[in-house]
Simulated scan of single mutants.
Amino acid sequence: MATGKNIKSSKELVDRTRTYGIDEALELLKKSAFAKFDETVEVSVRLGVDPRKADQMVRGAHVLPNGLGKTVRVLVFAKGEKAQEAEAAGADYVGADDLAEKIQGGWFDFDTAIASPDMMGVVGKIGRLLGPRGLMPNPKVGTVTMDLARAVQEAKSGKIEYRVEKAGIVHAPVGKISFDPDKLKENILSLLDALVKAKPSTSKGIYLKKMSLSSTMGPGIHLDIPALQAMIK
C-alpha cells in the first residue's frame, strides 16, 4: 500500500524543472516505482491542437510492438459465419442480442468491444452504456469491421486507442513497469510516431508541446521532445 513516505521519496528522485532523454527517463521510472503490483506505464502528450474544432480532433488506434503486458478480454458482436470467425481468432465473448441484454443488466467483464457492421443496430441500443466507458465500437479505430479475425488479433496483441481530451492532451498506456526498458522505449517511440502521423493539417505552430512519462503510482517525468522526434525520423 502506498504511503506518504513512499510518494515523497519517489518524487524526490525526479527534477521537475528539467526534461530527460528517454533512456534516463526510463531508468528514473524504474527507480521511482514503489507499488507492490506491476504498475502500468503511461505517456501524456500535450498537443498543439484545439479539440473543439472537428478538423483538429486527434483520434486513432495503434498496435504497440511489444503489447501492453496484460490479458485483454475481447467481446465481439457478430452472427453466423462472422461469429465463428471471431471465436476462431480467440474472442472471449461472441454474441448479439444476448450480449446486449447482459450489458443492459450491468455486466462489463471485458476490455474492448468489436462489431461487424450489420450488428450496429444492436450495439446502438446500448451505446449510452458503452460510450462513457470507452467501449463503443467505432469504424474510425477499426472496431467496426468485416475483418473480425484481424481486429480480435490486434486487440489481443496490444492495440490501444487514443483520443485528445478537451485540454489538448492524449493519455495512453505503453506497457508495464516490469517491461525491459528497450521494449518500453520501442512502444513509446512507436506511439509517438503514430501521433505525429495523425497531426491534423489545420494544426499550426508547435504540435508536440509537452510529453511526460509515469507509472501508476509514480511521479511524472518530463521528456526531451526534440530528442525523441530525432529518433522517429
Results as ranks from 00 to 15, higher is better:
53 K>V: 06
55 D>S: 02
56 Q>F: 07
56 Q>D: 05
57 M>F: 14
57 M>I: 13
57 M>V: 13
58 V>W: 01
59 R>C: 05
60 G>V: 14
62 H>R: 04
64 L>C: 14
64 L>T: 10
64 L>I: 08
64 L>P: 09
66 N>R: 14
66 N>F: 06
68 L>V: 04
70 K>G: 00
71 T>G: 09
71 T>H: 15
72 V>S: 14
73 R>M: 00
73 R>P: 02
74 V>H: 03
74 V>F: 08
74 V>I: 02
75 L>P: 08
77 F>V: 01
77 F>G: 01
79 K>D: 12
79 K>T: 07
80 G>T: 12
80 G>K: 10
81 E>S: 07
84 Q>K: 06
86 A>R: 00
89 A>I: 05
90 G>H: 02
91 A>K: 02
91 A>T: 00
91 A>H: 00
92 D>W: 04
95 G>L: 00
95 G>S: 01
95 G>Y: 01
95 G>N: 03
96 A>V: 15
97 D>W: 14
97 D>H: 13
97 D>F: 13
98 D>F: 10
99 L>R: 12
99 L>A: 12
99 L>G: 15
99 L>I: 14
101 E>R: 09
102 K>W: 12
105 G>E: 07
108 F>H: 06
109 D>T: 10
111 D>L: 05
111 D>H: 10
111 D>P: 08
111 D>M: 09
112 T>P: 10
112 T>A: 03
115 A>T: 05
115 A>F: 08
116 S>I: 00
116 S>H: 03
116 S>L: 01
118 D>T: 15
120 M>P: 00
120 M>Y: 00
121 G>D: 09
122 V>H: 13
122 V>S: 13
122 V>G: 15
123 V>I: 01
123 V>K: 05
123 V>E: 06
124 G>N: 12
125 K>Q: 14
126 I>C: 15
126 I>S: 12
127 G>T: 03
128 R>D: 11
